[in-house]
């Protein structure tokens, strides 16, 4: 645990150092005519904070379990736990924060999470290539999973976008790097959903899609992603998009129940939890979809608001 504490300390120090250098325009919510829009901006940002936290929560539990299974044989295996924990902290903070303007510490944590995920992915790729057989199905199925660290990146990106949305001034169109915020978030979420769906697809293929429900995470999220992409490109979205993205959010939660059923079908069921929780389908994995879908919903409301002017 000392390792985690040290990591957090380093991250926090870095964040504080950075915050001194950046000019922040944090202000309480505006008054008068701008109240409505102001509230919307903050609400959209908080939703994205929540989405980021949801994904990070999934990552925290999932990586804790998987790396415990791997006996924490490498010190770096503590990193995703620390990062995800900090991201959850940042997201909880963001959720409670009703002010405008990006928060430097949160920004730093989110950026760190984004970077850690990339480094982790590189690490997992390295782990796979050094296994006998290299980039084979065997290793894609059973060695360090490629998609898992990417989920931290996704939580980081979602959080980062939350800060960008929050950084908009009331009375101006919500933009991220000069582009309409809703569309940027929708686009990012769509790509993230596709990546997560690919990961689920790989692991469900490993399980030979033995239960028809296992097809859901490789069909519903891609459809949602396609609808979100269209929204991102056209700047408008119909009800169908909201339904599908909402259903994807629900699917992520239902996935926990399905996975629990999967665990129970392993020998010894939950009584044999020290084996089946690890050998069976991972309970904490599906809520990543919920997190991403929440980001998508937030994007959709931004898009609709932008259209209303």
């Amino acid at each position: 645990m000392t390792r985690i504490a040290r990591l957090i300390a380093i991250a926090a120090t870095t964040a504080l150092t950075l915050s001194k250098k950046r000019q922040l325009q944090r202000s309480p919510a505006a008054t008068g005519a701008l109240v409505g829009q102001s509230r919307t901006i903050v609400t959209a940002a908080r939703r994205l904070n929540r989405a980021s936290g949801m994904i990070a929560g999934s990552v925290l539990i999932d990586s804790a379990m998987e790396h415990y299974r791997g006996n924490f044989s490498n010190r770096a295996m503590w990193t995703p736990l620390a990062t995800a924990a900090m991201t959850i902290g940042a997201s909880a903070h963001g959720l409670g924060d009703r002010q405008h303007g990006a928060h430097t510490v949160r920004d730093t944590i989110y950026s760190t999470a984004g970077a850690v995920g990339l480094v982790g992915t590189a690490f997992h790729i390295y782990n796979i290539t050094k296994q006998v057989g290299g980039l084979s199905w065997q290793n894609l199925f059973y060695a360090a999973p490629l998609g898992a660290p990417a989920a931290i990146t996704l939580s980081g990106i979602t959080g980062f976008l939350a800060e960008r949305v929050r950084h908009n001034r009331p009375g101006t169109p919500e933009l991220i790097f000069g582009y309409p915020a809703g569309q940027v978030v929708a686009g990012g979420t769509a790509l993230s959903l596709l990546a997560t769906s690919a990961e689920a697809g790989l692991l469900h293929f490993r399980g030979a899609f033995h239960n028809p429900a296992m097809l859901l995470p490789v069909t519903m999220p891609p459809i949602s992603a396609a609808l979100l992409l269209r929204a991102a490109l056209t700047g408008s979205a119909g009800r169908m998009t909201t339904y599908f993205v909402g259903a994807t959010a629900a699917m992520g939660l239902a996935g926990v129940v399905f996975h629990a059923y999967g665990v129970s079908r392993n020998k010894g069921g939950f009584k044999n939890w020290r084996q089946t929780l690890f050998a069976g389908p991972p309970l904490p994995a599906p809520p990543s979809f919920t997190g991403l879908a929440l980001a998508g919903l937030s994007a959709l409301s931004l898009i609709r608001r932008a259209r209303r002017g």
């Binding site: 006998v132 057989g133 065997q138 490993r206 399980g207 030979a208 033995h210 239960n211 999967g262 079908r265 392993n266 020998k267 010894g268 084996q275 050998a279």
Partner: peptide, 30 residues
């Protein structure tokens, strides 16, 4: 690999995922 011959995973008659049919269910290998 080091002696330059091919290898693969052995095809096995034991389940790698749960199975169900009309007669009952079987859990995967432990």
């Amino acid at each position: 690999q080091k002696t330059g011959i091919e290898w693969t995973e052995t095809p096995l008659a034991t389940l790698s995922a749960p199975y169900r049919d009309a007669n009952g269910t079987s859990p995967p290998c432990v």
